[in-house]
Amino acid sequence: MKRRGLGRILATIMLVAAWLLLATAGVALAATPQDLATDISTEIASPYCPGVTLHDCPSAAATDLRARITAWAEDGWGRARIMAKLSSEFGPGIRAVPPPGGSGTLAWLLPAGAVIAGAVVVAVLVPRWVRKNHDQAPTGATDRPLSPDERRRVEGELDAFRGAVRGDQWSQ
């Protein structure tokens, strides 16, 4: 029993680890400077359109800022340097992704918490409910063979279904 419990915990840890792996896999590596510029423009809020990332902002000023970021990327600037430059120019609020530490920790931890809580519910509580049900059920209640009366009822239901299949005229 202990081994099964340990197995469930390990399975839960593996599921959460897979989730975290996939979460980080979402941040793709940019192939070209233009791709890097595009990636960055999806990770920062537009200073010119409220509530919209720079990538999605249609204003002319946003077009200019996207062009500046592309130029920096083409000059060999990395992601960190470009983000630092943007933060110094527009303030920390320009990041459209909560920072991984400090004030942003809670933003990342709570969804993970929800996933872990859900995984715990499924991995721990459900087997308990099943066990409880088995403890409460009369011995052999679910596995005993059908009585003649039950067998007759099952056969009757099956006959009715087969008849319905044969006589069905496309109506519900």
């Binding site: 979460a23 980080t24 979402g26 941040v27 999806t42 990770e43 920062i44 809020a45 509530g51 990332t53 303030g91 920390p92 609020g93 990041r95 459209a96 992704v97 909560p98 004030s103 933003a107």
Partner: peptide, 12 residues
């Protein structure tokens, strides 16, 4: 600080 949360967070 007024932050915004964009697609990168939600996708992750």
């Amino acid at each position: 600080v007024r932050l915004s949360v964009g697609p990168a967070f939600f996708n992750a």
